[in-house]
Design a protein around this nucleic acid. Structure first.
Lengths: 243, 243
DNA sequence: TAGTGGTCTAGACCACTAC
DNA sequence: TAGTGGTCTAGACCACTAT
């Protein structure tokens, strides 16, 4: 056992992380399987618990494994490749179904209010005009995948909340009840980290990265209809678009 | 000073991080300015160095501050909003110039070889057909913003490397010397972390998040011409596209 | 050389999970 | 109750930066 830091050049935590990762890649620990406990890894590598934890943290941060207090470290599922083509007929729920997962959606909050200036501007609202604000959690096999905040101009959707109680697909709802089909005008992409609330709903540690997508959609008549801010789990999602 | 962990509920590191963040937000430490040293913060909060470091790490991971060994912790710049519209006439260098920064590009590597199957498939190459592979570092005011790996079918670009020595704008080069103007077919977005080499070239710690964009572009005749894998610094870049 | 952050040892208590 | 990960104390050496 090394008593103190060595000439460096290797940084023990990275060496341990690389060994564990190669063992995971090599199939020694399968997806969903539990890794040896920290104490066991300390004995195996003859290193301090701090060092072993730093190594595990590297793999947690990279989305290779996840930690469960009181249980252990587990090998993560592989990222889903969500080929997300929002054109007529392709909905979030369809995408998830095609991947062999059970899609889910949960309305966390719904309001009618005056949106922030940026949103009002995109949706071409007049001064003081109100819009629906929907906060939706998207799930696949009961695993939270994304949090969406969607804005819709109030005037286009009378009695909107009558339809959201049995929420399943937003685009399905807009098509069925209002005859509106959406197409993308513009999107902005950013890699971010979650705030406390988002981390809670997505059930992820605060250092998981998120794919943040803001989108402006228009209907078949060219009117801007929907502004959405969606935050996807970076370790599980990859989003594709076709132009 | 607490001798051991307390009833929790507060988690000291988060409390310290919140205090520091509010002070940064409040303008106590300006962008680019140095925070007090770890030792100083230990004295101020009467906490162990480990705890103070965990607090600082939270802010580093969130992109609020960055650490320089031997110097200190510094407040980060705000993200650039790179509205990246790759259509005729809009180049990376143009985007950067418009933001008031000096664009830069550096060819890290250039090869001619048989691309991996996925790339060959996208570019409609026949079995064994070769392509150019360019690894390019993009900079703004000498700060590395992204690493791009670009593939171009060899047959469309005779004497290609004659033109890459004085590299400035790839799309400018393709237009000038080959009369080819590009448009987006498809893009895939993911939030990831850098590998060791990427972290080195981008000069970022390994827990900085990256916005990874794979794109397939076609020329004015509809032929798929370019496949690019671009990794942008998540703390500095936001990429917008228009459809 | 002094000061800063980066890494590590050794050992403790807290909180969650399973039995 | 035992085992696991989560947090923290106290102190050490290493590597980089400025002077």
């Amino acid at each position: 056992m090394k008593r103190y830091a060595e000439p460096k050049e290797e940084i023990t935590r990275h060496v341990i992380a690389d060994i564990l990762q190669s063992e995971i890649d090599g199939g020694m620990y399968m997806v969903g399987e539990k890794l040896p406990s920290e104490a066991e890894l300390c004995r195996r590598f003859q290193e301090n618990r701090y060092t072993v934890r730093q190594a595990l943290d590297l793999l947690v941060t990279t989305g290779i494994i996840r930690a469960h207090q009181g249980k252990g470290h587990y090998v993560c599922e592989k990222p889903l490749d969500i080929s997300y083509t929002i054109t007529p007929g392709m909905r979030f729920s369809d995408v998830i179904s095609r991947l062999g997962c059970q899609p889910g959606a949960q309305v966390l909050k719904q309001d009618v209010l005056i949106p922030p200036p940026q949103v009002a501007h995109h949706l071409l609202l007049v001064e003081g005009e109100q819009a629906y604000r929907l906060e939706i959690l998207r799930l696949a096999d009961n695993v939270p995948l994304s949090i969406n905040v969607t804005w819709l101009p109030e005037r286009h959707f009378p009695d909107f909340f009558m339809h959201t109680s049995s929420f399943y697909s937003l685009y399905g709802l807009l098509d069925e009840h209002y005859g509106i089909r959406l197409q993308r005008i513009w999107s902005a992409f950013q890699a971010t980290f979650p705030n406390a609330q988002e981390a809670k709903f997505l059930n992820i540690p605060p250092n998981t990265n998120l794919l943040h997508i803001e989108s402006l959609m228009r209907d078949q008549h060219g009117r801007p209809i929907e502004f959405t801010s969606a935050k996807y789990r970076g370790d599980l999602c990859k989003v594709s678009i076709y132009c």
